[in-house]
Design a protein around this nucleic acid. Sequence first.
RNA 1: CGGGGCGUGGCUCAGCCUGGCUAGAGCGCCUGGUUCGGGACCAGGAGGUCGGUGGUUCGAAUCCACUCGCCCCGACCA
Length: 567
Amino acid sequence: MLWSKLFIPTLREDPAEAEVASHRLLLRAGYIRQLAAGIYNYLFLAQRSLLKIQRIVREEMDAIGGQEMYLPALNPAEVWQESGRWDVMGDNLFRLKDRFGRDLCLGMTHEEVMTVIARGELRSYKQLPQIWYQIQTKFRDEPRPKSGLLRVRQFLMKDSYTFDMDQAGLDAAYDKHYRAYCRIFDRCGLAYTAVEAHSGAMGGSQSHEFMVASEAGEDLVAVCPGCGYAANLEKAVAVPAVPSVADPAGDLAPEEFHTPGRKTIAEVAAFTGLPETSQMKSLVVVADGKPVLLMLRGDHQLSETKLGALVNDPEFRPAHPEEIRQWFGAEAGSLGPVGVTNMPILADQALVGRRNMIAGANKDDYHLRHVTLGEDFQAEIRDLRQVAAGDLCANCGGALEIRKCVEIGHIFKLGYKYSESMGLRVLNADGKEVTPIMGSYGIGIERILAAAIELYHDKDGMMLPPSIAPFQVVITPANNSDALQMEAARRVYGECQALGLDALLDDRDERPGVKFKDADLIGVPYRIVIGKKLGGGLVELVERKTRQSADVAVADAAAAVAGRLKK
RNA sequence: CGGGGCGUGGCUCAGCCUGGCUAGAGCGCCUGGUUCGGGACCAGGAGGUCGGUGGUUCGAAUCCACUCGCCCCGACCA
């Protein structure tokens, strides 16, 4: 295509509102423009790139037997009420009424609609398994849209759903998706990791997220460089780092001591001269309307996700100061487990095997030393803590790292949540009605583009992988007023097209510097510069990512690019 | 929803604290000319109800109140 005819509104300066690299560059390179918070216009370049991503997704979904559909974004409330998500989703669901006052919503995913189709049409085990997918605009009323295309209120998602007769079928469907996702992200040129994920409100037994490491991300992932273990921090397990000071040995009885004004773990550590690892942290939460005392090692953080799942109440809350006073007779800074009988105690497994630790005395300004789990108090042992950097891998003992990541895909074994609540049943070979088991699998289309930019950019602009760049090659005549250069540029451009390349001819009447800057900014992987060496029959072939350039014969330029793209 | 910040030509910003001429700069845009390997130069030109509403004042971009929008932190989050 001819650049002079295209709408590519590049900006010379960084837009003020953009913080993260992908947002800044998408705006500067003329890919997107904002319409409202979390709502973007995808201009020509973005659309071109997104279409390429969608094409890759389609090809790989089709390759595992996926059947593409297109379902309404506008959904009647009834189907969401049937699944229960009308209430569960709260303010995240965009809701509206039609002229007759009927409730509708804009779909954030399509489990319900897919299940409606399935229950209306699937009758027999002979029709299963099925893999249905769509690429649709999804809506979420995000409380805080941010970071350009990374967290938006309207976005494209590939979502697929599988229906199987049994767990083995679901396992196979899940595995197909897992492998398809790897191929998709490989083809998109992303460096990604598949991590074990918390299945959250979606229920279900198994779940993986596909993550791209980036400071712009919002998820934290624990990874083991040694054995490859990787899990979302919400779910990660690890062996805690060894306490920095060994516990006092012996069968010692709890012993009260005065700790005036020392309320936090850090203050008590400073006061006693013993590290935080020698203390027990006491947290009181109210879950399901009832108080629970949680015991953790002093330096450990509570995992709210894990606790939410344990107590079956993701909405649990910390106890109020008055409640703590009432239940313990002391302030939050002096709480401990010894003598507590009016509520259940959950202790993190990192406390097992520890002896004679320090904990609050349930008496203001006093702590106890020599507190031992199982001897001085009884508790249910659970995994409560959030894994931290430096913890040891449960598989291989290596030190774990924590990385910020962008989630680009998520696969779930849904189980029977929707098929059961919405009444999907088919007849099995014995003529009995059975409920099929489902899986659900999503890919954030725009996030692939944004994540690629986060991964691959420099001070001059994007360095998009060729598979998802809006163009594969740009032909840049250095001087438009040089008729020979222009003629050669047109010829090379034609040859690129003949070879099936996505080529862009920068025929704008601009100085070379402007053309180079723009080409770098929008991230075209290869550039053929027609310049002064044309007299000697040579043009310059430059790779955007590496900045490596090579002189090639004019006649070979197009083929040279095609050759490099094949690699 | 809590905390912070910002709304002035298309973009980046100055002016506001301490009210006072026709509201500025750089970039971009238009016309003409010169130029042509990393965001050129000269000359001329277009473009702004200063987010909105109300108030104070002889007079408001500037002060006050309300309000809308956007960004960031937190909460939230298939």
